[in-house]
């Protein structure tokens, strides 16, 4: 299997962010969200790679913890959304009939309903009392539908293959067929779905945090921007406070996107159709 350029670049970016945000905090014993740790508004220097902000926080270290927390939330939630979409999509596609219809109505509704307004209500209700666990749970509720839809359409076409009949006549039951015969085909897609889901989760949490409806006390890629906007970073010329998370978000998202499309391309070529 030959990796294409997209996948290589994507994995490089992801490795950079993941390793950087997991390893660097081991060499730091200052809580980055603690205010007044350093002098305010220090310029970029060897001690403060991105300077400090008006709250006396080191922007570089705040950013490192933000990337770490966002990635943890993204990966954690995506494990569940991917599992749910695999189970629902595979079973709906293989079993068909009424079961399929009900699952699909639910899936299409969750896709068609604008999730953000509902997240805003939930964010407003739990504001202050929320924790990352509840936030993750809410994101799972809205995150599984796209994946389930795709997995289901794949299962639907695989069901028609001859080897499924062979397996059934050899005495396999539904669960065995779904996991032993159909699942291996869908697995490559699930990796893609998993990465896309990480993108969705980080993006949604950040969007909520930017308007102050997530747990903004925990550094994430959204809450860093929330505080920068809250203290008028642009107005007072503290550009680094807002430019640094913007650049980090764009590069991280590009890495996720390149990995998912690159991986998809590689498997499409291996299956024999580009």
């Amino acid at each position: 299997m030959k990796m294409n350029f997209r996948l290589k670049l994507g994995i490089f970016i992801l490795a950079f962010f993941t390793l950087g945000s997991l390893i660097l905090p081991l060499f730091n014993d200052v809580d980055p969200s603690q205010q007044g740790t350093y002098f305010k508004n220090l310029p970029i220097s060897g001690d403060h790679l991105l300077g400090t902000n008006t709250q006396g926080q080191d922007i570089f270290w705040y950013l490192v913890y933000s990337v770490r927390n966002s990635l943890i939330l993204g990966v954690g939630v995506s494990i569940f959304t991917t599992l749910i979409s695999a189970v629902l999509g595979l079973s709906a596609g293989y079993i068909g009939g009424w079961y399929d219809r009900i699952i699909m109505i639910l899936t299409d509704s969750v896709i068609a309903i604008p999730s953000f307004p509902i997240l805003i209500v939930l964010g407003t209700l739990v504001r202050g009392n929320t924790n990352f666990f509840i936030l993750g749970l809410i994101l799972v509720i809205f995150g599984w539908a796209w994946g389930a839809r795709t997995v289901r359409s794949m299962a639907l076409s695989i069901r028609e293959h001859e080897f499924i009949n062979t397996s059934r006549f050899s005495g396999s039951n539904t669960v065995e067929i779904i996991f032993q015969e159909i699942f291996p085909y869908v697995f490559a897609y699930m990796v893609v779905g998993f990465i896309n889901s990480i993108l969705f989760v980080i993006n949604t949490e950040a969007a909520l945090a930017v308007i102050g409806l997530s747990k903004v006390e925990i550094p994430t890629l959204g809450s860093i921007i929330f505080w920068a906007l809250n203290y008028n970073a642009m107005f007072i010329g503290q550009y680094m406070w807002i430019v640094a998370p913007v650049v980090a978000t764009v590069v991280l998202f590009l890495g996720l996107f390149l990995t998912s499309t690159g991986y998809n391309q590689m498997f499409a070529t291996r299956r024999g159709h580009a």
Binding site: L199, N203, A206, A207, V210, G222, I225, M234, F235, Y239, I242, V243, V246, T249, V250, F253, L254, L256, F257, L258, T261
Partner: peptide, 22 residues
């Protein structure tokens, strides 16, 4: 297209505000 696709709305909005309003 590839670069633009994964950029979220709030980032685009902030970049445009930063560039064309500040």
């Amino acid at each position: 297209g590839v670069i633009l696709y994964p950029i979220p709305y709030y980032i685009l909005a902030l970049v445009l505000i930063l560039l064309f309003a500040y």
